[in-house]
Design a binder for these strands. Structure first.
Length: 597
RNA sequence: GCUGCUGUAGCUCAGUGGUAGAGCACUUCCUUGGUAAGGAAGAGGUCACGGGUUCAAGUCCCGUCAGCAGCUCCA
């Protein structure tokens, strides 16, 4: 560790430019190479980004393909050698505009007008190529660094879907070959963990053209995973005073007119179906239904807080280009809950929710960061005093729960402030699932009330919260987080029992029966294929433990335990195996520990 | 939805306008194997779907559906 830190410090000393500057300069280098190869190119923006850089460009006569990237890389190396000096120059606004217009760089002309009036307009030039850019940049392009162009895709000019679509080239750059290689290896790892690939390989889920894009079919092997998660979820919710509610998937359209979803969310909703001349809609959210339950009779302050939970399946129209495996779908189940409480109870309720979020995320092995999102500057509803109080209550709740908050200023919903969680998975990617939102809007729209101790009708606050977000997205993310190697309590098959020869099958079956009697998920692999093959199959299905049994084990009442991903052959009494797996399951442990005697 | 690419066996993929292919998986038989693929045979196809060009289309063109990389949007 110490030597790593020293090496890193040394690199910083040797290279006076930050990585983002390197990448920005390499994007310029790339642009100049493209200009050489395709003289009619028009340029958009070309910034450095988290893992590299991109440049947006328009080449009227050519659609770039992967193979063009190799040509461009070659040209880049040539240019870096031939014209290494990067020169910064400054022009007046009119000169800049005139120069870019003369070059027919229409997007760049527009870019000039985006620069604030009091700022200097600068260009960076190497060789005969020059780009409007505020910098900063490397001094020379022939410094020692390493880059690779990665992919091409379309991107709207200035991110606006009403504007022309440009071609975008993504690439990355590092100071050392090792760092570049490490990043490319990371990209490979991302591919290997792709839940769609693992989903197919391990027979977890599927989507079908017959059913439509964005509708997920959970296979039995993933069905158990979900079921285990749901059991865990209900256990923890019941322990915290949540009551299950169930609401219908289809309701009269008027319900969503009352809730405001028709007006504000209508584009995401499936169109109406008419029954006896009444329009009905499939629900895009669960909250209107829960509001109806609240409203069904008068409520007293004595009843509050009320915590209602539902694994509620909702349907939303998502544009065809955005559906993605289990992560972005058109029908999904939210682990939803609505808490109705008084303003005084808010902080305590928030603390309870945050505590639950912490427990659940930790159980799945996620690190997390929580963000407090405050009142948006544009449109939002409710009095400022309520916003202030609710925001303070969120902060206080977080304090009570011992969760530090980062600030997401102005990131709240129009109907109230919220706390969002970002989790970091096993390879450092961020996902957003958990959310806790205060809502002043729906109680208003549904005219929800309770009678307070002073006999006055008052408006409850509604907390919307989801811990996992949606089961589809969460489990899709889990597959990637665990790379298909689910912890013992979640594994589709927890234990494989493998008799070496057919004559050991009875012993194997007796062990399997004992495990099944305790409701472990066991595969007794007593088919007559070769043992090595069965071990390979179990290994490929990521079964946490294999119990290999032959003559010796049968004689001693033991089994040879092989752990997933290892070549362990620990011979232990079967009773010991039982102890360990009972413990792993009851603790919902993330470990698959080695067994020894 | 938009731009580009792709769609051949359950999976991964070859396939030059002229008779549909491989490996793995599957089925059957043989194999009795001590920790990641034993052997042989067999079965499996409306080349996504619908049009078109052509003597002839898996191959070329158009449309639809679906997938992939992004963009926009999102749990």
């Amino acid at each position: 560790m110490a030597s790593d830190a020293k090496a890193a410090a040394k690199e910083v000393q040797v290279e006076p430019f930050p990585l983002s500057t390197l990448r920005h300069s390499v994007s310029h280098l790339m642009a100049s190479a493209v200009a050489k190869l395709y003289p009619n190119v028009k340029f958009g923006f070309g910034p450095s980004i988290e893992h590299g850089f991109y440049y947006d460009l328009e080449i009227p006569e050519h659609s770039l393909e992967e193979k063009d990237l190799r040509r461009i890389e070659k040209e880049m190396r040539k240019i870096a050698k031939r014209s290494p000096e990067l020169v910064r120059t400054s022009l007046s606004r009119d000169e800049a505009r005139a120069q870019l217009a003369a070059q027919d760089q229409t997007y760049k002309v527009e870019a000039v007008d985006l620069i604030p009036k009091d700022e200097e307009i600068t260009f960076y030039t190497h060789g005969d190529w020059s780009d409007l850019c505020e910098g900063p940049h490397l001094d020379r392009l022939d410094r020692d660094y390493h880059f690779k162009l990665l992919s091409v895709a379309g991107a709207y000019w200035r991110g606006d879907e009403k504007r022309p679509m440009l071609q975008r080239i993504y690439g990355t750059a590092f100071w050392t070959q090792e760092a570049l290689d490490a990043h490319l290896a990371w990209l490979e790892e991302v591919k290997l963990r792709d839940h769609r690939r693992i989903g197919t390989d391990q027979d977890l889920f599927s989507v079908h053209p017959e059913a439509g894009a964005g509708f997920v079919f959970w296979h039995p092997r993933l069905g158990v995973v979900r079921h285990e998660i749901e059991k865990f979820w209900w256990e923890e919710h019941e322990a915290r005073g949540y009551k299950p509610v169930y609401s219908p998937h289809v309701s009269r359209e008027t319900l969503f007119a009352v809730s405001g979803h028709l007006e504000n969310y209508g584009e995401m909703m499936y169109p109406a179906m008419d029954l006896e001349e009444q329009p009905y809609r499939v629900k895009p959210m669960n909250c209107p239904g829960h509001s109806l339950i609240y409203k069904d009779r008068g409520r007293s302050y004595r009843e509050l807080p009320m915590r209602w939970a539902e694994l509620g399946t909702v349907y939303r129209y998502e544009k065809s280009g955005v559906v993605h495996g289990m992560l972005r779908v058109r029908g999904f189940t939210q682990d939803d809950s609505h808490i109705f409480c008084t303003p005084d109870q808010l902080a305590g309720e928030i603390a309870g929710v945050l505590d639950l979020v912490k427990l659940m995320l930790t159980t799945f092995g996620f690190d997390y960061t929580a963000y407090l999102a405050t009142r948006p500057v544009e449109k939002s509803i409710g009095e400022d005093a309520i916003w202030k109080a609710a925001t303070a209550a969120l902060g206080e709740g977080a304090k009570l729960a011992g969760i530090p908050l980062e600030l997401d200023d102005g990131g709240g919903a129009f109907y109230g402030p919220k706390i969002d969680f970002k989790v970091k998975d096993a390879i450092g990617r961020e996902w957003q699932n958990s959310t806790v939102q205060c809502d002043f809007n729906l109680p208003e729209r549904f005219d929800l009330e309770y009678t307070d101790s002073d006999g006055q009708k008052k408006r409850p606050i509604m907390i919307h919260r989801a811990v996992l977000g949606s089961l589809e997205r969460f489990v899709g993310g889990l597959i990637e987080h665990f790379a298909g190697r689910f912890p013992f309590w979640l594994a589709p098959e927890q234990i494989a029992v493998i008799p070496i020869r057919e004559e050991h099958a009875d012993y194997a079956r007796s062990l399997a029966a004992k495990l099944e009697a305790e409701h472990f998920r066991v595969d007794c692999m007593d088919d007559p294929s070769h043992m090595n093959k069965r071990i390979k199959q179990a290994q490929e299905r990521q079964v946490p433990y294999m119990l290999v049994v032959g003559e010796r084990e049968e004689a001693d009442g033991t089994c040879a335990v092989r752990r997933r991903g290892t070549r362990d052959q620990a011979v232990v009494p079967f009773e010991r195996v039982l102890e360990v797996v009972r413990d792993l399951r009851s603790r919902r442990s993330l470990e698959v520990p080695a067994l020894d005697t």
